[in-house]
Design a protein around this nucleic acid. Structure first.
Lengths: 343, 343
DNA sequence: ATATTGTCTGTTATCGATAACAATGTGTAA
DNA sequence: TTACACATTGTTATCGATAACAGACAATAT
């Protein structure tokens, strides 16, 4: 149905090859001929078929991006960053939401490869994503991992310094007087979870506070998970005075659970987490957080990927660690203000 | 470099056509042969090339989605909804952020057509997007518009009932005692802006409050725009007691401007807007808003588009109007509580 | 035994664009 | 005038898969 290069050639009275030359701006076309072709293109409203071009050139000008969920305010800037960088390089982005589900993630990977994306940007669901990613790497397929590392996988990677971030956040909690600090985190199958737990433990240890495994609650890192884990926190004895939530979704669930019990933050319970959220930061600058440069994950990730695709990257894989910021607001209380107290 | 169907055929000792038959599960292949082919596919880790398949079948199994910005908490659920629905139908989504820029939007449209997406889901930048969309429609290219209608364009469409929503929101403001209500909105070049303004005027009129054009501030519908417009609001005389912001981005800017002047909401100024934001709704249930079913825009939009692509849609275009919810929280004050007072 | 039906598999052409090469014509040098 | 360089344009084959048709062979019917 759509106009093809041949249609243009017929109308201009030249061969398909000549039209192709004009389109690709190649030298060796008579000025007069070029005009005729351009007129025909204009008249027919011709748009070249990238699918056909992709078949012969083996280049589709598309990248695949797999994130757990675009709606997560951490990932949406990642997506935008990647898309913007891709666009500037003439690439388009196929977006996939894995929902943190390994099977779905695997399905997406296979399908994107089948669609012949030139490279893949993946925020992996968990360590087990390793089994889906490894075969790609073996074949030399361009892949960049973002947010989470995968064990024993030599792959371009962008993460943030979760351990240091977590440590600083917990140090802050300790500095304002907390000693019983619960940590709501994931099933220990993500690098981010492990690193943040490490930062948590390091901070406790540095302050001489004994580590209690019952203060670490394992859950799914979404709103429901945060909610349930916080309910468990609230049944602990002694009751913690602070909760460190592993990300922006769990903290929402945590808040929900606290509100149900009519607990006030930070008076009855301090709350801190990873990830700043723009709307919250302005409309309700309340949560003390570790802010990650989310958009950079996407833009830099796309850049690394494009470099690898174009062969500019060299054989060594790159491992980029982005620094985080501690943003202190009201949700952890302060020494001067009302110290958290037990009920 | 990747394995082709021919490689599989060679290894299995059959023709390419036979392999194709096995892959597509067509009848008429000997069980023994089928096994040989399947073994070869397995051994070579073969993945069919959808680009080649797309060329012959004229079907790429991809949809294009253009939104102003995925990071906008209204649009990210739209994207997820569309992606999920597309996936379930075996389609992938090419995501584009137009940044509300007409030129960029045009570029994206052309490029997506060139990539041979089977249909296009567009949240248009403004009325002027009409000129980019119309040529598609003329060619019979499947398009579904979401969020904003385009004038004189007969096209499948999903919008929400902005006028009624705005009217209810402003009626609420009036009910709790406000009479000087400013409205921060866009340059009158979007259907949503016009509808919301209409709802605003209707509510005023119904309450016998005269409409004042100087209370309607035109700006870009982003954070900066909301900020600047609110600064203007604050220099009005008489000073309004309430601001109705046209969407979730402008309200952020508005809040910023109010905070700079140390104004407390709702004591010094009431604030209301379109769009609820999950994180805010839970962590800081404060803003009174009109909530739109964002994810439905995406999922239903994708569904309409898929129906049109598959020819199940019939020649008539469909115009779907989704209903909105008024969610009353604290940001507008109340009759019983502290009424807004002038400084 | 021959025709007929059906099962299974291979061949050729095609989707739309392009790489590689071939052909045509023009102008200039010997 | 003949030869050769150069500019311009066309032809053929190809990317990977598949539609449409053709061929080979076995089983059944007449």
């Amino acid at each position: 149905m759509p106009i093809t290069l041949r249609d243009v050639a017929n109308r201009a009275g030249v061969s398909a090859m000549t039209v192709s030359r004009v389109i690709n701006g190649r030298a060796g076309v008579d000025a007069e001929t070029q005009r005729k072709v351009e007129d025909a293109i204009e008249a027919l409203d011709y748009v070249p078929n990238r699918v056909a071009r992709g078949l012969i050139s083996q280049k589709t000008a598309t990248l695949g991006l797999i994130v757990p969920d675009v709606v997560n305010p951490f990932f949406s800037p990642v997506v935008r960053g990647a898309e913007t960088t891709a666009r500037k390089a003439g690439y388009r982005l196929l977006l996939c939401n894995s929902e943190g589900d390994l099977r779905l993630e695997r399905e997406y990977i296979d399908d994107l490869v089948s669609h012949r994306v030139e490279g893949l940007l993946i925020a992996p669901a968990s360590d087990n994503s390793r089994h889906s990613v490894f075969p790609l790497l073996r074949r030399g397929f361009p892949v960049v991992l973002i947010d989470r590392a995968l064990p024993d996988l030599d792959c371009d990677l962008i993460v943030s310094d979760s351990a240091t971030g977590a440590r600083r956040l917990v140090e802050h909690l300790i500095a304002v007087g907390h000693r019983e600090i619960a940590h709501v985190t994931d099933a220990e199958d993500t690098s981010t979870g492990r690193e943040r737990l490490r930062g948590y433990r390091d901070a406790l240890e540095a302050a001489g506070i004994p580590y209690r495994s019952e203060y670490v609650l394992r859950t799914t890192v979404d709103r429901i998970g945060g909610y349930r884990a916080t309910q468990q926190v609230l049944s602990l004895d002694p009751l913690p005075t602070a909760i460190f939530a592993v990300n922006n979704m769990t903290v929402v669930g945590a808040m929900q659970a606290l509100r149900e019990r009519n607990m006030i933050v930070p008076k009855d319970m301090a709350l801190a987490c990873f990830d700043d959220v723009e709307h919250l930061a302005v409309l309700s600058p309340f949560l003390t957080v570790i802010d990650q440069p989310a958009e950079t994950f996407g833009s830099l990730g796309a850049q690394l990927l494009l470099e690898r695709i174009s062969g500019k990257a060299g054989p060594r894989t790159r491992r980029i660690v982005l620094q985080t910021d501690l943003i202190v607001r009201a949700s952890c209380g302060s020494k001067e203000g009302a110290l958290p107290h037990r009920v």
